[in-house]
């Protein structure tokens, strides 16, 4: 079986004035894969991700996302992806139900689909007692799980997660990754950035960015072999120390 690639990037770059934030990155992500996108702060991860989501126009290079050209079909791409940013981006002054309804609605789901999704998510995330509470009253870990579920409410081909577990306790992080595996099993490709190396081990493949370039890209096990390390932590330190850029 030939693996189908849902993200293909070739020489993608983003330049802000004199600053090359992302420097000719090329990679492919296969359908259903969990792709870890690692790098130190300021390495260019978020910029790269924002380009792939159509939030930022690349300065040069080529890319297709979910089969659509990044330059020509940005609006088509937006229908096929989900995105969860570093900033929490559900409406805190709306209830859980209202947030699901709103995002389902603007992704064009039917009333029936929204109802089903809401019922499923409330049940799945054990939010029965909170479905009519305002989102701001939820603990951070729950908010993040909800934000992820809302980001894939329209069953996109790919979901982009930008440091989704920042500041979340280990138990909730574990639960969060279970949600990611669920999504992956349903065929949703997961593109995730993280600073937690244990999370990097959960990924099918990992790329490590240093100073805007992709320095390494392989499965966690192969990376450990290549860099002669016992853990991903060691791999990351060996690579990231080479960085010339500060924060």
């Amino acid at each position: 079986m030939i693996k189908q690639n849902v993200i293909i990037a070739e020489g993608l770059s983003k330049i802000f004035g004199n600053f090359v934030a992302v420097d000719h990155i090329s990679f492919e992500v296969a359908k259903g894969e969990i792709f870890g996108f690692l790098g130190a702060n300021g390495a260019g991860k978020t910029t790269a991700m924002r380009m792939l989501c159509g939030l930022s126009t690349p300065s040069s290079g080529k890319a297709t996302v979910a089969g659509f050209d990044l330059f020509k079909d940005t609006e088509q791409i937006k229908k096929s992806i989900g995105y969860m940013s570093q900033k929490f981006s559900l409406y805190e002054d709306l209830t859980i139900r209202e947030n699901i309804q709103f995002y389902g609605g603007i992704y064009g789901l039917s009333k029936k689909q929204i109802q089903d999704k809401t019922a499923y998510l409330v049940d799945h995330l054990h939010l029965q007692n909170y479905q009519n509470s305002l989102v701001k009253s939820l603990p951070l870990g729950w908010k993040q799980k909800l934000a992820f579920s809302v980001a894939i409410v329209h069953d996109p081909a790919i979901v982009f997660l930008d440091e989704p577990t920042g500041g979340v306790d280990p138990v909730t992080r574990r639960e969060f990754w279970e949600l990611i595996y669920d999504a992956s099993e349903r065929g949703i490709t997961v593109f995730v950035t993280t600073h937690y190396m244990d999370e990097a081990e959960y990924c099918n493949r990992v790329s490590i960015m240093v100073d805007g370039r992709i320095e390494a890209l392989d499965t966690p096990n192969n990376l450990k072999k290549t860099y002669n390390s016992l853990s991903m932590d060691e791999v990351f330190l060996k690579l990231a120390r080479k960085a010339a850029r500060g924060e």
């Binding site: 989501c53 937006k78 995105y83 940013s85 900033k87 805190e92 603007i106």
Partner: peptide, 13 residues
């Protein structure tokens, strides 16, 4: 400021 506009911007709205 709260970042929800970015969330809207990745949707087909």
């Amino acid at each position: 400021e709260i970042g929800t506009i970015e969330q809207i911007n990745v949707t087909p709205v």
